[in-house]
Every structure is written in C-alpha cells, then in structure tokens.
Design a protein around this nucleic acid. Structure first.
Length: 491
RNA sequence: GCCUCCGUGGUCUAGCGGUUAGGACACCGCCCUCUCAAGGCGGCAACACGGGUUCGAGUCCCGUCGGAGGUACCA
C-alpha cells in the first residue's frame, strides 16, 4: 500500500446523526487514522425535498464531540472543494453526457407517473419490475426534438443485459451479480441534480477516494457503480461495506425508536466516550478480549479483519454497563459538575450537601437521568409500605422495630457535632451495648428516614446528609406513626 | 417474487479441520456488608437444520429454513 489512503464519510443532512451512521463515521475515521490517510467529510444533499435546516451543523457538532476529526470538509476546505454536493451540481452533467456519447447512458422521457403505473402492472403479474430500456430505443431525431421542445427528462445508466458483474469487498469478499438483474438506474434527475448513485461515483473519483466505507445497503448496487467507473475509465476504489446496526432481530435501529440518535443518548446522560467505546464494539472486535478503549487506542487496535459480516443488535444493557464504568472512572470533580443539574432536578433548594452526595452516588450512577429518582427522598420523605421495616436477613422484626427506633432516637438526640464519624460511633456503640445486631437497628432507622428499600448509602450516611433536625423529624414522625398504628390495633 | 448478503448462548463476540467451544453484558446463587451498588466466587445458557468431503467439521461444499439489505427522479 504505497498510495495514500483517502476515505470519506458522506452523510445526508436529514436530521440528527443516527447511531448507525455514527458508527460508520467512526470505523471510517479509525481506518483512515490507522493508515495515516486523509479523512474527508462530504455532505450529500442532492435530495432537495429532504433538507432539514441546521442538520449539517448537527453533523459537525456530533462528530467533533466524538473526537472524529476530518481533514477536508465543507468548513475546513481542501483540495477537492467544495464538499457539499449541491455546490458541485454543475460537475455531474458533463460526465453523464460523456456516458451518453459512449453508449453507457441515455435520455429517458418517461414520466414518474407512467413508470409507477407500469411498475404496478408488472408487480400485479408477479414480475420483477425493471426499466425496460424503452427510451434507449428512441430514434435520435425524436430524442433531439424532445430535447429542443424542453420535454423533461432524466438520464439513465445503460446496464448490460448479459454477463455478470463482480467485485471484492474487504469485509464481504467476492460479490457477483448477474447483469440482467441490474436496473437502469437514474443518474441525473429531472431537476438536473444527480442521484446519490451517480454523485457518489463522480465525487469519490474526483476526490481521490481510495477506500469507500459505507453501510451494506449499498452492497447490491456496487456492481452498477463499478460499471460506471469502468465506462468512465476510472480506477475502482476498495470497498468496505458494514453490516447494519439493528434494534432487534428484524428491525434496523430506526429513527422511530427515539433511541437512535446520538443526541438522544447524550440527553439521557450517557457519556460520549462510553457510547463511542460501545459502538466500536458493535460489529468489530480487536482480536483479543479487551473491552475498554480510548479513541487513540481504538485507532491503534483497529483492523478491517475484525469487522463482522452479520448485523448486530444494539444492546442497551451493555451500553449502560459501559456508561456506568465510565462514570465510575470520571475524576470526582467532573462527576460532581455533571451530576449537579440532575441533583437539582430533585433537590434544588433542599440544602443537601452535593459533594458528599456525589461521593455516594458516583459508583451507583449508571445513567445520569436515573439520578433524580434515586435521591428525591432526601428532599421529601416519601410514603412507604410499613412492611419495609421488616427484614428477616437484617433481623428486623415486628417486636424489635419500636425498641430499635427509640434506641436510635435516644442515641441521636444528644449527638453533637453531627458528623458521620460521630453518628457511626455512637450508633455502633449503642447497638453493641444493647446486645443487638447492626441490622436490627440500622435497617429500620434507614427505612424510617428514607422510606426506601434501597438508598445510595446506609443509615449513617443518609442521616448525615439529611442533617440532625430533619433526621430526628423523620424519625419521630415514624415512631409516632407506628404508635398510632399500635393504638388502632389494641385500643 | 427476483437479486445480494448473513446465520456460535437472550445480546455482542472469540474460533479460521482436532478446543472440556473462550470472553463480555444480562440473568441466578453465595460471600462481603448498616440497604443498594461496587467487588470476589460460582452457576444457567450457543455452533439453525439436513446431506456430503474428511480418520476427524462450529470451521470446507451443497441444499433447506430463518433473517437482513436491495429492487425509487431517497440517500
């Protein structure tokens, strides 16, 4: 490999960046960096009807966030500028004309409606629809007359009807398709814009792309692209087609799921690094059992041979596990600042010490958006089922309950200053003195002041976070509540 | 329908003719422990099916079945 590798990521600006596309961009980037090549960003906006304002910026921002840097692109320029297809509009038609002259393409005056009708008829007969080359057989005079009259037309590729076309994909190996099954695809649309199919070939060539890395939805049309390369006398690039990222066995991860865009995950509190790390492993493996990678390490480890051929289901569970791991590894100050807005959602103005809370929460946070529900009880004592007090394993029984709570109260009332160490030592000493098991007192205490089956921290940490006043308030309320309940039972 | 591709536990995967089929997530159990989490230990669970080739097949060939993609003046 002595020629410099040039690759491109060529998204359409139709909205947010889909995770499947992100992964394609990632692999493309990794491959290119690994081989010291040039990574190009090209915006494919040939479909005027599907433009979404601001979508291009979303692509830039997402890629940058992820650490996927492009060497040439619309914003940074480069020797093959412009990098937006609509701005290259005029460069396609001459090639199409050249193809017409050499018999590899032809004008077609069939209307969309007419085509749709014929397609439906063919399908009604159970036949495969394929353009019948009707306009290829038009006499030259008629073509010229229609052209002069301004009749709308498209330009179609004239694919051979015999033989077969084949190529070698770096992932899928040898791919061959009978030419008779190849449709005469439209190259230039009636509005003068090239189709993706055509623009792609022209741009990839004029930008000197050596390796085309893209989703496998293009695998079956690649033979047609290659026919174009040959007709134009161009060198065919290497192909690396990537299997799809699936939601489940039969569905691609789709925009409808609400879980398909990069931004969806970031908003929920997934870390970019975790997402990238996970995504890299959906459809690729490093050849060993390593799972954690920084971007630099991914570049180092990346190899086409580790790419999988079969579609992979996106596993939210595993992503979440990665995310929790990444959160645990975050420097504490970083965690604190990221968690603060989520603490605020449940605890704003409640006077809780976020720093201590963050210490307790960092190891327990899987996704940031789960924080509010986990800490809300600190701001407001929730209602809870009294059954929660009873816990066999902790040796907290109906009989031990009231004495335990009162013991805790008696120990905590005189306590000063209110520090975790003090609370801990006093409680432990009192429990030992009473000859009880830790759980017998601590379990009901934690329940009484939190109302939760589980909390980020034990009774001691929770008591400290709540503060002495609030802790005793809640404890007293719990005791009174139980006493009332007793009275009702035995008046 | 036709064309192309794919097929190892629930999920992501290792395997590239001889393995007790390995790892990770999830799940279950135990330990640790003032709950939960983390951690430690253990467990459940896979070569889609049928034919070949071979001394020997998850690995090679053929077929069946299953799935995906394509079949647009969308990309």
């Amino acid at each position: 490999m002595n020629t410099t590798i040039r690759t491109r990521f060529a998204p359409s600006p139709t909205g947010f960046l889909h995770l499947g596309s992100l992964r394609t961009a990632l692999y493309c980037f990794l491959f290119t960096r690994k081989h010291n090549g040039t990574f190009i960003l090209r915006i494919e906006d040939t479909d005027q009807e599907r433009q979404v304002p601001g979508a291009t910026e979303v692509i830039y921002d997402t890629l940058r966030d992820c650490g996927i840097h492009w060497d040439e692109g619309p914003d940074v320029g480069g020797p093959a500028a412009p990098y937006i297809q609509s701005e290259r509009k005029d460069s396609y038609l001459p090639y199409a004309r050249q193809l017409i002259e050499t018999g590899h393409a032809y004008y077609c005056f069939c209307t969309k409606e007419d085509l749709a009708l014929r397609r439906r008829q063919a399908e009604a007969h159970g036949e495969t629809w394929k353009y019948d080359k009707h306009c290829l057989r038009l006499p030259n005079e008629e073509i010229q007359a229609k052209l002069r009259a301004g009749t709308p037309y498209v330009i179609r590729q004239n694919t051979p009807v015999t033989g077969e076309s084949d190529f070698d994909d770096l992932v899928y190996g040898h791919i061959a398709a009978p030419n008779e099954t190849l449709d005469d695809m439209v190259l230039i649309k009636a509005d003068g814009m090239p189709t993706y199919n055509f623009a792609n070939v022209i741009d990839d060539n004029s930008m000197g792309i050596t390796h085309v890395i893209r989703g496998m939805e293009y695998l079956s049309s690649t033979p047609k692209y290659n026919l174009l390369y040959r007709a134009l006398g161009w060198e065919i690039p290497q192909y690396i087609h990537l299997p799809n990222v699936m939601r489940d066995n039969q569905h691609k991860l789709s925009k409808r799921d609400g879980d398909a865009y990069y931004s969806d995950f970031i908003q929920k509190g997934y870390l970019t690094e975790a997402l990238i790390n996970y995504l890299a492993l959906v459809g690729w493996n490093p050849g060993n059992e390593r799972e954690f990678f920084t971007m630099e390490e991914l570049i180092e480890a990346f190899s086409v041979s580790g790419l999988s051929k079969s579609p992979a289901i996106f596993d939210l569970n595993k992503l979440t596990w990665f995310n929790a791991e990444y959160i645990r590894r975050l420097p504490f100050e970083d965690y604190l600042s990221r968690a603060t807005p989520w603490f605020d959602q449940a605890l704003l103005g409640k006077g809780i010490d976020y720093r201590r809370l963050a210490e307790l929460m960092q190891g327990r946070t899987e996704v940031f958006n789960r924080i509010p529900d986990m800490v809300r009880f600190l701001g407001k004592m929730p209602d809870f089922d009294k059954e929660l007090y009873l816990n066999k394993k902790q040796k907290s029984t109906q009989d031990s309950l009231m004495p335990s709570l009162k013991l805790a109260r008696d120990i905590l009332i005189p306590l000063s200053p209110w520090t975790e160490d003090k609370i801990h030592d006093a409680l432990m000493a009192g429990i030992k003195e009473a000859g009880l098991k830790n759980g017998t007192v601590l379990w009901p205490l934690r329940v009484a002041i939190s109302g939760q089956a589980s909390t980020p921290g034990g009774a001691i940490e929770i008591a400290w976070l709540l503060g002495k006043d609030e802790t005793l308030l809640r404890l007293n309320a719990a005791i009174e509540d139980l006493e009332k309940q007793e009275e009702r039972k035995n008046p």
